[in-house]
């Protein structure tokens, strides 16, 4: 067969495999590691990796908005909170099975995100960042205010669900695999969405919104829809987060959660799907490492790290990896636009 396809001789290979083949191989390896992981590490680690995956889902949502559509949000913690509280209230107050609460949390966030995204039609990047920053700062207050629903400062305690169908898994392992499955589905959907017509329209709006309009892209609709879908992903993450952590309280959803999300998506690499996973692992483990470096002022260490990181790797980890890999395969510098966001 290969002989009939002279084009293959042009495709660069490293170690006899093309880039696409290496990618498939890498993906398979990651999946195998992901499935094997809970049987190798302890329960607390399983819990941590579950959280990292949950963050990855939230980051993917943020990434769609910021990386692919060029809109900033400093307030995705608020959508995460809405998802978490939707699940907590449904479980605790109404006794609904947790499996149902996850999609509902996503839908609620879709609607809220779409509505919040409406002003985004008219706002340039920084203004949206300000509005969402305000949303994130105000979110804990609002949660405390509606005490009857949210339990006020006390929050709501949730009971961890056991594995169904008599599966031989403990609660932590079950939640790990549930999260993994949801993650895979959501990532596959996102990949198809972003590589298709919709994704191209989103990127077109980011890079040249006037040209995109002229070519018939309804930028207003796409922008607020993107905001909605982005919130949906983050809301599902919030819902899973509530179940896994077994507790929601207003102060877990402070501005720092939103900041962490933004940091994770930028550090992981904007406009890359794999960046969300790297980012999720980053925001779970790096602040802890900062604490190891300096018990007294971990925030300062984290802050310094962020500034140095932005200077050294402005395209994020995934962006830099992409560049290295492309260089490996093509032998010279490629045109990389990873992490390219509307510049001032």
């Amino acid at each position: 067969m290969e002989a009939q396809l002279p084009a293959t001789s042009i495709i660069p290979r490293v170690g006899g495999l093309t880039l696409a083949q290496w990618q498939r191989l890498g993906l398979a390896a990651v999946l195998i590691v992901a499935v094997a992981l809970p049987f190798v590490v302890g329960n607390y680690r399983v819990f941590q990796f579950t959280l990292a995956m949950i963050y990855a889902i939230a980051l993917l949502g943020l990434n769609m908005l910021t990386g692919f559509n060029g809109q900033f949000s400093l307030g995705h913690g608020a959508f995460y909170a809405i998802g978490a509280y939707t699940t907590a209230i449904m479980l605790d107050r109404w006794g609904i099975a947790y499996g149902w609460t996850i999609p509902v949390a996503g839908l609620v966030c879709l609607v809220v995100g779409f509505l919040f995204g409406l002003p985004a039609l008219r706002l340039e990047g920084l203004y949206l960042a300000l509005a969402t920053f305000a949303l994130a700062l105000a979110a804990p207050q609002i949660l405390k205010y509606f005490e009857g629903w949210t339990g006020g400062v006390q929050g709501i305690v949730i009971i961890k669900p056991a594995a169904p169908f008599g599966l031989p898994l403990n609660e932590d392992e079950w939640l790990y695999f549930l999260t993994l499955a949801i993650l895979i589905v959501l990532f596959a959907l996102a990949r198809n969405l972003l590589r298709g017509r919709v994704g191209r329209a989103m990127v077109a709006i980011r890079d040249h919104h006037i040209a995109a309009e002229t070519m018939g892209v309804n930028s207003a609709l796409y922008k607020s829809l993107t905001f909605g879908v982005s919130a949906l992903y983050t809301g599902i993450a919030g819902s899973l987060g509530a179940i896994v952590v077994q507790f929601v309280a207003p102060d877990s959803f402070s501005i720092f959660l939103s900041i962490n999300f933004l940091v994770g998506s930028v550090v992981g690499g904007l406009a890359t799907i794999s960046g969300a996973i790297i980012g999720g692992i980053f925001i779970l483990f790096v602040p802890n490492m900062a604490e190891l470096v300096s018990k007294a002022a971990p925030g300062a260490i984290y802050g310094i790290f962020l500034i140095v990181f932005m200077y050294v790797m402005p395209g994020g980890i995934a962006g830099s990896l992409k560049m290295v890999i492309h260089r490996w395969f093509s032998g010279n510098a490629p045109a990389v636009n990873a992490g390219k966001v509307a510049t001032k």
């Binding site: 390219k340 510049t343 001032k344």
Partner: peptide, 21 residues
């Protein structure tokens, strides 16, 4: 010459440094 978002992250870094210090 960095994109706006990088600068926003730098501002956030500063915020964390001042608060934590």
């Amino acid at each position: 010459k960095a994109p706006i978002l990088s600068v926003v992250i730098v501002f956030i870094g500063l915020l964390l440094i001042f608060q934590s210090t």
